[in-house]
Design a protein around this nucleic acid. Structure first.
Lengths: 329, 329
DNA sequence: CTGAAAGCGCTTACAG
DNA sequence: CTGAAAGCGCTTACAG
């Protein structure tokens, strides 16, 4: 592989001039520029970026920490990050942690060891584990309120409140909920929204109506089974993500429950599949792609040495009304 | 940030010894090892990997080229790659190309410019565009037969043949197909399998039964509309991926077609959602995760300078029978 | 506008 | 087992 030295020899110029011709062409004469480009052409020279990075102490690489890449919501956020990265000349190193703390640490070490300029964490901040971020250039995306570093998210509490409020507006008074793992911050915030909506309408939320899931299809399916065993069944069900809603609908239909005639269901996220299930799912749309773009842009700013204007960017969500909700009989 | 020089000063040893203590502890005395580790501890030293990489001319990074990260099948393959990478001490740089050739070239340049040691292409090989791979360490995963460099895949033709053969074995003789884009190699191979299965059973495949899609939910939905307009409707439909099958089922149900009673449907891939649609989808399961693992391992071997044992690794697929197929009336 | 030289942080023959 | 030194490929003050 040709190096800058080969090019300088071929062009009959110093390596300094060759380097400038590439990085700062305005500092070099036209004649030299021509010689250099001819030499580059002839030798098929590609600058060794590894060397450039090392020299500049800047990698133009960011790491994206994600608990599980096989998740359509995360994946859409990552698309946004990739787009912004491509636009700004950055690359993204994928950190699929699978909730493995060692793996998470390894990726953080990448930033610490100058392999990457910064980091985006895609999930709620975990106190304890990810506190090590504080000394890094890092931003949290799709997390929760109170993240101790810059974050881009929606207001989960309000969104849940809106989802449940919509069910109430359709006449439902007995509303169940399938949550994520109970310690998860998203669960906590969305559950708060659920309770807020209920009490704002003067309704009581029976504790047995709250069923714990873990944001997977399977847990939605299982949650619905638990729901069916309730003696005093609600007429509507709020699922804290679309995957659980889809799992729940499956289980409900298996038991002969007709949706939305007997039971209304609302999801959260608006995955592409939400529009293709039967009935099409009414859900909260998070601006996943935009969240990714925004998070990346905030990070690039930080890397450039500017403090972000805000410590939190709260983006708007939207209620998407489709066919899974109907007034109770 | 502390450098190796700081550590050497702190430990009262040369930087050479410090370097060895870290990379080749067996070459260093116990006493020195202790001094070094104390100094590292005290200074919170992290080796600058950017420098190490540059020095070693080895990045321990691979790029994964994927047309679209927001695709559950791809994402599962990537999980496999990530697992293998973590195990072997590699990192993965995500190349979400969005079918943009410029972006694809940029990522290839990353390997050429020594930013990454090799590349995995997740999609069928595109003659012309990706010919530039030939001089790189590259492997193709989930592509097609005849890829001009190492590849890991299933036999698409046989898999399609099996899917269609299953419909035939259930008594269907009139079978339609929703394909991907017609120039796509997967489309071509799977279509061949479809025709093979038909003619092996002595059946004729009416050309109007072949409807072009593009592997998206929407195109499956649209394809089913086109299907409904057929005068002489088949009793079964083979969709070249699960997304199109799910889209098609949605459209069919909207038109009041009962599945599988009136029409049987088979998919391809076995996405997590396949088991949660209504009816649960009978489909071909690709070993996505394993394909990712295998592709990564082959690449790591190549990077280590060993030629792969085989130029093609053809992994087994599986027909998953669920509820979307029934004998025709 | 150009070149000689220092140096980014490490690793590794070489000599001891 | 250890250290002095060269060098990986580039960039950038500095001097001209």
């Amino acid at each position: 592989m040709a190096t800058i030295r080969d090019v300088s020899r071929e062009a009959g110029l110093s390596i300094a001039t060759v380097s400038r011709a590439i990085s700062h062409p305005e500092m070099v004469s036209k004649a030299s520029l021509v010689k250099v480009s001819k030499a580059i052409e002839k030798l098929q020279y590609k600058p060794n970026l590894s060397s450039q990075k090392f020299r500049k102490q800047r990698t133009y690489t960011i790491v994206v920490l994600v608990p599980n890449i096989a998740n359509l919501f995360f994946t859409e956020v990552i698309s946004g990050i990739e787009d912004a990265a491509a636009k700004h000349g950055y690359h993204v190193l994928l950190g699929d942690t699978r909730d493995n703390h060692q793996r998470e640490k390894d990726f953080i070490a990448l930033v610490e060891s100058k392999q990457a300029d910064g980091l985006i964490q895609l999930r709620p901040h975990l106190p304890g584990v990810s506190d090590s971020f504080s000394h890094l250039k890092a931003v949290n995306v799709a997390g929760c309120a109170g993240t101790p570093y810059s974050s881009v998210r929606i207001d989960n509490k309000e969104a849940a409140e809106k989802a449940v409020g919509y069910l109430i507006s359709q006449g439902h008074t007995r509303i169940g909920v399938i949550t994520g793992l109970k310690d998860n911050s998203h669960t906590i915030e969305r559950l708060q929204g659920y309770h807020n909506a209920m009490s704002a309408a003067g309704l009581v939320a029976d504790p047995t109506w709250t069923i714990e899931g873990d944001f997977t299809l399977l847990s939605g399916w299982q949650g619905a089974q638990a729901f069916m065993r309730l003696k005093d069944k609600p007429t509507a069900l709020f699922c804290m993500n679309d995957e659980m809603a889809i799992g729940a609908i499956k289980a409900l239909k298996e038991k002969g429950v007709s949706i939305p005639d007997t039971l209304s269901v609302v999801g959260f996220d608006d995955l592409p599949f939400a529009n293709y299930c039967d009935p099409a799912l009414t859900t909260i749309r998070q601006p996943a792609m935009n969240m990714g773009v925004k998070a990346a842009e905030v990070l690039f700013q930080m890397i450039d040495g500017q403090a972000p204007q805000q410590s939190e960017y709260v983006l708007p969500f939207e209620l998407i009304v489709r066919d899974s909700v109907k007034a109770p009989k």
